[in-house]
Design a protein around this nucleic acid. Structure first.
Ligand SMILES: [Mn+2]
Ligand SMILES: [Mn+2]
Ligand SMILES: [Zn+2]
Ligand SMILES: [Zn+2]
Lengths: 149, 149
DNA sequence: TCTCATTTGAGATTCAATCTCAATAAGAAC
DNA sequence: GTTCTTATTGAGATTGAATCTCAAATGAGA
């Protein structure tokens, strides 16, 4: 977590009349110091492992705030759990997801973004956001026999 | 539900050693006779409304079979519920979703499909399926003031 | 018609997420 | 620093979609 990230968080809290608590800072720190796409539960457990006790409720509530005020990105890959990722200093991007091992790779394609705008315009939709996920087998999983266990 | 749709369903059941029950046929009929994107619960309630009693469990189980054997399409728009749609005689397509009223419009863009293949290839992923959803405000919602209620 | 594995229905269970509420603590006012 | 008000926390309860359990019912091949 850089100073500027922390300042940005403090500013959001101040602007929204939310209090700066040690729990909120610890959750934000944990999120900043990873570039994975993690579930709230994983963030909760990572904190516990570091002997930082923040309740599960507070982790969920803090992730809501971070998402609400655009300090993290949130994604749903269809398994009923939200995954969060560090978002600051990072461009909008989409994901390639391995259906066997779960590896997530990020991609940016400006050509697709342009076409998305065209499609929305054609149907008179005012585009707000999009979800674009490509599911398949990563190289390693293509080369690994199915039942190794 | 056309005869050919029913025949297709019967063939799948036979091929997979699954039994042709009145409940399964009624669920499939309900799905075929609508072009909406509906939750299992909505399908269950629609059947009850028509005085066709199929248990909630059986509706869920049948939707699983229909999805499993590619007789319906399934989508997740991020609200924790699966939505199912009639799929036979219908091409792969993507969705524009209104974030206010929930209206869903379908679109097909072969150019994007081509780029998806390129992206997957570039990252050495063997593409299996994709999720592409554009969220925004439909024309009507853009023109309607927020708090009418 | 008989047999037996499959299916059904009702209710229990799961699990991520949200809610409740009493105890605690942030931070503004003095 | 002390006081005061209000937001926040933590523990556990609750929600809701989906899945599981198991006894009773039934499809379908013999
Ligand atoms: Mn990402
Ligand atoms: Mn559709
Ligand atoms: Zn993989
Ligand atoms: Zn709308």
């Amino acid at each position: 977590m850089t100073d500027s990230e922390l300042e940005k968080f403090k500013k959001v809290l101040k602007d929204e009349n939310l209090k700066l608590t040690p729990q909120r800072v610890e959750v934000f720190r944990e999120v900043c110091n990873s570039d994975e796409h993690r579930e709230a539960e994983e963030i909760y457990l990572a904190l516990r492992k570091r002997d930082i006790n923040v309740s599960r409720s507070t982790v969920y509530r803090t992730m809501d705030i971070l998402y609400q005020y655009d300090l993290v990105q949130r994604m749903d890959i269809g398994d009923g759990k939200w995954r969060y990722e560090h978002w600051l200093n990072c461009h909008q991007h989409d994901h390639l997801i391995c259906i066997r091992c779960g590896t997530i790779v990020e991609f940016i394609n400006t050509q697709i973004e342009g076409i998305q705008k065209d499609v929305a315009e054609k149907f008179n939709y005012q585009l707000v956001r999009h979800v674009h996920q490509l599911f398949g087998l990563c190289k390693q999983c293509q080369d690994t026999p199915v039942s190794v266990k």
